[in-house]
């Protein structure tokens, strides 16, 4: 019994997804249109397929050797946290500041220590992206000022 094998974990995740899909498809109703397959038909077919492949993976994983691959290390964690924070609050953060800060943080996490690079590149990227989208295409990007 290997409950930490990557296939066991992914099989369990697929089964959980299938349960979620089926439970959400219960009160979908039929809506308009003539007599045809209901809106919940395709999601349920998918759920059935997920149950089959999920169960298969779960059983295979339980019988296999090995464990989970390392999902995170320190650097991925830093990039991921910075990304999650910035993209989730994208609307609330001035894009010029956000791009600059994210770029700087990522570069530091990657061990770039050349001062000139650290000063210039984040500013340059932020300026190029901001200018080309807001002036070139007249896209209204989130700004504070």
């Amino acid at each position: 019994m290997n409950i930490l094998h990557k296939d066991t974990v992914s099989g369990a995740a697929l089964l959980a997804l299938a349960v979620l899909v089926v439970s959400m498809s219960l009160d979908m109703g039929t809506g308009a249109g003539g007599e045809t397959l209901t809106p919940s038909f395709v999601p349920r077919i998918c759920a059935a397929g997920l149950v089959i492949s999920g169960a298969f993976l779960l059983l295979r994983g339980l019988r296999s050797e090995g464990g989970m691959p390392a999902i995170l290390d320190r650097r991925i964690a830093i990039v991921m946290i910075a990304l999650v924070f910035y993209l989730w609050f994208f609307h609330a953060i001035d894009v010029r500041f956000g791009v600059w800060a994210f770029t700087l943080a990522t570069m530091l996490a990657f061990g770039i220590r050349a001062p000139l690079m650290l000063i210039l590149y984040p500013v340059a990227l932020s300026a190029i992206l901001y200018l080309s989208f807001s002036w070139g295409f007249r896209v209204v990007l989130p700004t504070w000022i």
Binding site: V79, L83, Y86, L87, F90, V95, V99, F102, T103, T106, M107, A109, F110, G111, I112, Y121, P122, L125, L129, F133, L141
Partner: peptide, 15 residues
């Protein structure tokens, strides 16, 4: 270097 590529592509994708 990935240290430059990663932030550039992430930010380009977001915007």
């Amino acid at each position: 270097p990935p240290g430059i590529l990663v932030p550039t592509i992430c930010m380009m994708a977001a915007i």
